[in-house]
């Protein structure tokens, strides 16, 4: 306990960098195994727009040079790695010639905001409900309602999103249908803008919360059953501690530990899980960017988004590794 030993920190950092490096390499290799030529796709797009393209061979060669895929693989790989270090993933083929990094930089804050808020809400609600399913002092009504609410978990996010849109946006008109902020609002650090963002983010966040809280609740339920049978919970009761104190300080405090690891892993996965929700609500985040990139076979963007997902997962696992010994005294840095 206390401060983090330097050896341990160095060790974890090396693991982090190695993970990211291997992931970056895989992201580069996988598309190159595919027979699709991005230059041809770009050309095809031009042809579709103009009806026909003259000098197609010359244009193709020019496109290849621009995309850098006319060079030997080793050179391409080297340039790619050098680019990754500077968060440069080249140019998008679909929104040519916008750099991928610009697209990501525009989309990332929206997703991070939506994702982190909904993930934290889900984590808190899900774990609490899971704990209440087990706790002996939970009112009987709750014990019936919570498992019934698990039904929502089986709804695909696309359906829950549409359902929420229909009820709250179309019928009740409490919330806007789509978008990340009002069309008439000027983006900036203003109160009106913030209000607009929260107002627009509510339904997408809710649709994520509704379908994902069950994951945490069911996991927590299993962990709580284990903790409930532990001798320390029995002794806590025999000590005459107040039931609520036992619930938080003895039961949830111990049961939550594995959930925190799961939380770190979920951070990366959520971008992928959010793709359809963002698409439905026309929310300009990473999910929608990835969705559009897949539709348009926009490899540089897919690469860039994948890299961001991996980076986020690796960093959050790294952070949990550092923090864990502080929340579980049995785990020590370095052992």
């Amino acid at each position: 306990m206390g401060i983090i030993p330097r050896d341990y920190l160095a060790n974890r950092l090396v693991t982090l960098l190695l993970t990211v490096f291997i992931a970056a390499t895989l992201i580069w290799i996988i598309p190159r195994l595919s027979p699709i030529d991005p230059a041809e796709i770009a050309l095809g797009r031009m042809a579709a727009g103009a009806g026909s393209v003259a000098n197609s061979e010359a244009i193709l060669a020019q496109l290849r040079a621009q995309l850098g895929i006319d060079q030997p693989l080793a050179v391409q790989y080297g340039k790619y790695l050098w680019g990754v270090l500077q968060f440069d993933f080249g140019l998008s083929t679909a929104s040519f010639p916008t750099p991928v990094s610009v697209l990501i930089a525009n989309a990332l804050p929206w997703t991070l905001g939506l994702m982190l808020i909904s993930l934290i809400i889900t984590f808190v609600i899900g774990n609490l409900l899971g704990a209440f399913m087990v706790w002996e002092h939970t009112p009987r009504l709750w014990k019936v309602v919570i498992p019934a609410a698990m039904v929502f978990t089986s709804i695909p996010p696309i359906l829950s999103g549409l359902l929420l849109m229909w009820i709250f946006a179309a019928k009740l008109q409490w919330f806007p249908l789509t978008g990340a902020y009002g069309l008439t609002v000027e983006p900036g650090w203003t109160w009106t803008f913030a209000q607009s963002v929260l107002y627009h983010g509510f339904l997408p966040a809710l649709s994520i919360v509704v379908v994902t809280f069950g994951f945490w609740a069911l996991g927590m339920r299993g962990l709580m059953i284990g903790v409930q049978g532990e001798d320390y919970t029995t002794l806590a009761k025999a000590k005459g501690l107040r039931p609520r104190y036992i619930l938080y300080k003895y039961m949830i405090r111990n049961a939550i530990l594995p959930q925190i690891t799961a939380f770190a892993l979920k951070i990366g996965l959520l971008i992928a899980g959010q793709v359809l929700v963002e698409r439905i609500f026309a929310y300009n985040g990473m999910g929608k960017l990835l969705y559009d990139a897949i539709l348009n076979q926009d490899f540089p963007v897919i690469q860039g988004v994948s890299f961001v997902i991996i980076l986020m997962t690796a960093v959050s696992v790294f952070l949990v590794d550092l923090v864990y010994p502080f929340i579980d005294p049995r785990i020590r840095h370095g052992s």
Partner: peptide
């Protein structure tokens, strides 16, 4: 009853190995 426990009647459990809260 809660006030009776520990104050009037205390309990020393069998499995001392796991009877203490590991994170406290």
């Amino acid at each position: 009853m809660r006030r009776v426990r520990l104050k009037k009647i205390s309990y020393i459990p069998q499995g001392a190995m796991n009877s203490l809260n590991p994170v406290m």
